[in-house]
Design a protein around this nucleic acid. Structure first.
Lengths: 128, 128
DNA sequence: CTCCAACCTGGAGCGCGCTCCAGGTCAAGC
DNA sequence: GCTTGACCTGGAGCGCGCTCCAGGTTGGAG
């Protein structure tokens, strides 16, 4: 069940080995288990965190904020309000990000339509 | 009509003065006009390009690719096919980006709902 | 027991996209 | 004519998020 070698954790999470070590080094992942010889052993729990980190990273949360979130979670249950708030603020930023992306995507599509209406080559309109 | 001082161009485009200079230095903006004394004068045309650059930048196109596009446009009308293709490929990447963002946003929302269903504090499920 | 691939550490390096700086020039208003 | 703020240049520096490296250790297969 639990207990994955580094390479396996990398494969399952989609993060590189170096990134997993980096995340531990900066305190995103804490208390990763080790074998007697010092090699990492990742648990299902660690993988769960990695799934969350991927979600937050893909939505553009800076690492410093992920660190903060992870630290709050480690601090215990009395931080749930703050964690909730942190995620809500982030969600709002993501919504804004999505709106902007959609808007600019529409511009892009319009630009593309310009090329598709071309044959006959209209004048002017430099950023062709 | 045309003919904007650098600060005005910055204001209108939303790019910083340093960024405008940087864009010219790396060949995104080419042939920016100058006064006799060497100070830049931006045209409506330049501003048009800047709008496009903002669109491409906001949708995540790397600068190298914007450079390529701008160079093609300067090369003349026989490059319209290639420009069209470049934008289409980019649009496809943006669509993928939007799908990913939506998916991860949904995850995030689910996580937030977890906090909102909390009071009573369920056990387990570490990445709280 | 030996081998070798996978792993370890600390720290340097990188790619991107700016951003800042020093030291000097330009030009509009008084 | 003088002042002063906006502008110029080349080049260094930065913040982010990794990524790579050297040199050494571990541990499962044969």
């Amino acid at each position: 069940m639990s207990g994955y070698a580094p390479s396996e954790a990398a494969r399952r999470s989609g993060f590189s080995l170096d990134t997993l070590r980096y995340y531990e080094k900066i305190g995103l992942l804490a208390d990763v288990e080790r074998t007697a010889g010092g090699q990492r052993v990742f648990t299902d729990d660690d993988l769960g965190w990695l799934v969350l980190f991927r979600c937050l990273r893909d939505t553009g949360m800076p690492i410093a904020q992920m660190r903060r979130y992870a630290q709050l979670a480690r601090d215990g249950e009395h931080t749930t309000d703050e964690r909730h708030e942190l995620l809500c603020h982030h969600a709002a930023r993501v919504e804004e990000q999505m709106r902007l992306l959609q808007r600019q995507y529409d511009h892009l599509r319009e630009k593309i339509r310009f090329y598709e209406r071309l044959p006959g080559t209209a004048p002017g309109s430099e950023p062709g």
